[in-house]
Design a protein around this nucleic acid. Structure first.
Lengths: 212, 212
DNA sequence: CAACAATAACTTACTCGTCAGTCATATACT
DNA sequence: AGTATATGACTGACGAGTAAGTTATTGTTG
């Protein structure tokens, strides 16, 4: 009758290596759904399949999880943009096209795109987090675009302009479009990256182009 | 010795007319500082100089206060943009210049600019609020720009393009710049509206312009 | 124009649920 | 045996919203 004590599987496993990433995965899911404040650490824990106390073995506090997400999800992308810019100074127009295309694709990824929104919404209460994000993400990305605009102007490909302003003009719309589509529309609006990339890039590069 | 009961002033006054506005003023101050979730209704009440229960005489719930702020602070601006666009179809370029200038000035107003950030951060939990904002603010503003681009294309002032994309390219950078300046930089970055307006408008309108 | 009733505007004090973070204890691994 | 990894149960504080009572104001009546 009674099953003999057969192969009772352990109540939990040691997974010290993989836990941080699992927690970040879970946190992103929950944060994306609820926002930072309304998200419960307990829900993140459940999603990551461990206990709440378990989460605190790997992250000191709730906001440390968000910092972890910045590090893992978006900082590498920004650094990559920077690298692309450095590699592309000889062809500013082409490099800018690539950067815009890359960012537009990113803007289609609702999960990744949730991170900037989270940072923005808590920035006033976590100034350190805001500074970290600014240095590692925003300034990298804007810097990349700025560098290319400057190079283009020097090479006579673009007409003279304020590189800082031009950089914002190039990248701003992509973010606004992402915010609008993912977080205000819900699901209703389709995001047609290819068409948008073309249209936006055309307008902007044409606007920057030196008159032939 | 003891002061006789002289002219004891009332413990409070009836101000049914002015209360809602006073509460909204206070709420904006507190929301801007703390964000929606971390803001306490009690703090809003104190700032507005009445009791917490008093606030609930005028607003059903915390999110109703935010809706009130949308109505009072930003919806009128969006409607105004729309009106400017309708009045300006005969001169799309000039009207767009005016719209960009107006929005850029708005982007310098940290108080007003806090509202979009608040909405964005709670949109996923308050879909009705998000819809209200979208219909009364975003769609009005984008619609205005779109209308003018379309008119410009038809009149041959602008070369053919997707009006929706162009509208975002025109307005997106302004918002991104506002978010960045007010909420990520703290206070460090100066906002030089005049110069920015010129530079941004130049790039974009030049990009849209029909080739002579 | 007092006195007083009726009501609108307001407050104090509370309830009730929530949740970040901790502590004592247990289990898996080496 | 010893330790790293995990858990369940707890604490302590907090905060949205409410109930019941209080005060200012308005109107009414003799």
């Amino acid at each position: 009758m009674a099953e003999p004590a057969r192969e009772q599987k352990p109540k939990w496993r040691r997974r010290a290596e993989s836990r941080p990433d699992e927690i970040l995965d879970a946190a992103l899911t929950i944060f994306e759904r609820d926002g930072f404040d309304a998200a419960r650490v307990e829900d993140i824990a459940k999603e990551a399949k461990l206990s709440k106390a378990g989460v605190y073995l790997y992250f000191d506090a709730k906001d440390a999880i968000l910092r972890g997400l910045i590090e893992r999800e978006v900082a590498p992308i920004a650094r990559n943009l920077r690298a692309m810019a450095e590699a592309g100074v000889s062809d500013p127009k082409g490099a800018l096209r690539m950067i815009i295309a890359g960012l537009t694709e990113l803007a289609g990824d609702r999960r990744k795109f949730a991170v900037p929104r989270l940072v923005l919404s808590v920035a006033s209460r976590y100034p350190d987090l805001a500074a970290f994000y600014r240095e590692n993400v925003v300034d990298q990305g804007l810097g990349a675009a700025e560098m290319l605009v400057k190079a283009g102007v020097e090479q006579g490909v673009f007409r003279p302009c304020e590189p800082g302003v031009a950089a914002r003009s190039l990248l701003g719309p992509i973010f606004i479009h992402g915010f609008y589509t993912h977080f205000l529309l819900g699901d209703r609006g389709p995001l047609e990256p290819a068409a948008r990339i073309e249209a936006h890039t055309d307008i902007l590069l044409n606007g920057l182009a030196a008159r032939g």
